[in-house]
Design a binder for these strands. Sequence first.
DNA 1: GTCTATAAAAGGATAGAC
DNA 2: GTCTATCCTTTTATAGAC
Lengths: 200, 200
Amino acid sequence: MPAQSPREKIIMAAIELFWLKGYNSTSVADLLSRTQLNSGSLYHVFPSKQDVLVGVLETLKDNISPMLLEPAWGGIEDPIEKIFALLAHYRVGIVESDCSYGCPIGSLALELHEPDPQVRTLLAANFEAWTNAVEQCLRGAGSRLPANLDRRALAQFVLTTMEGGVMQARTHRDVGYFDRAVDQLRSYFAFLEEAARVGA
Amino acid sequence: MPAQSPREKIIMAAIELFWLKGYNSTSVADLLSRTQLNSGSLYHVFPSKQDVLVGVLETLKDNISPMLLEPAWGGIEDPIEKIFALLAHYRVGIVESDCSYGCPIGSLALELHEPDPQVRTLLAANFEAWTNAVEQCLRGAGSRLPANLDRRALAQFVLTTMEGGVMQARTHRDVGYFDRAVDQLRSYFAFLEEAARVGA
DNA sequence: GTCTATAAAAGGATAGAC
DNA sequence: GTCTATCCTTTTATAGAC
């Protein structure tokens, strides 16, 4: 295993700290103390703190499969169950953090009110990558869902459910709010599958 | 009309600035310049910046009817249409801000990662007040919805949809993401209403 | 209750030696 | 590429006169 470069160390530390504390509440000093680097090393690689954020968002976007999808989907083949397994994966994160932490992208998206275009675009690209993965599952479900269903819109709605459910679970410090959101989505899927059966 | 007290001026300015810029990005100096007050006046009323936040959250919670529900519901009687009118009200805010600003409570809920218990409780109470209003609409819909439907869980799901849709619309700077989320919720409601008809 | 001035600390970023 | 020291700005909050 090769030694981690300063760049990798900083990105990994920033992914965790931005997730735990948010962007504004994570100081450069926090990143330095976590990585045991000096400010010269950080600023040699990243001209500004915002460049660290850009690196984080690029890393998350480019590694959504190994960092999120593969761990969530281990062994699961059914395309619709993969969607709910992804949601269950977020549930584990909620519970393990005592309902304190949610989706790293969603938190950043609402924390940064007037992000630079580059940052905003990367946030959107992360949502896009997530939605694309779910959309592929929905397409994989074939005739189990109505033929005229807008599968891209439904994929976005899965993300909507996840983000809205995480937000309420965090705020109430009660994973039940996330569970009930997922339950409602399950119920909607059941209607859609029933409609596909009857319509076929 | 009586002159606005310093306290009222600060709360109103803070509601707007926290919505526009967020809590951390709004400085006490911002509040002073917006209200034309001096720091002595602010700190005489609010011992700390966080106390301003508490005042804001209490004001929003205690005035949800005049500040949100009544403007959204003007003239609408149908309980289910009231729910979608509430969502349409948020849509106006999204469009008028060029997809920059969303729900003030949701933004604060995700910006503040480790809020004081008092603040977190007030955020949750705001969600609760919102959900209660929607739940009353769902109860008002009576037999148009299935008798065994968990109306509280569905009310929470309406909030889930709103918050998740707002987040994506803001991030993509495209209200279409909000619209498609609402469309999916409409579709779910259509299934529920159909199930109530058939089951009756 | 309100005014001005300022303290005290934190945070992002840079300089220049090595 | 990395080290230490430090500059500069912003920000929360306070002091003490009026």
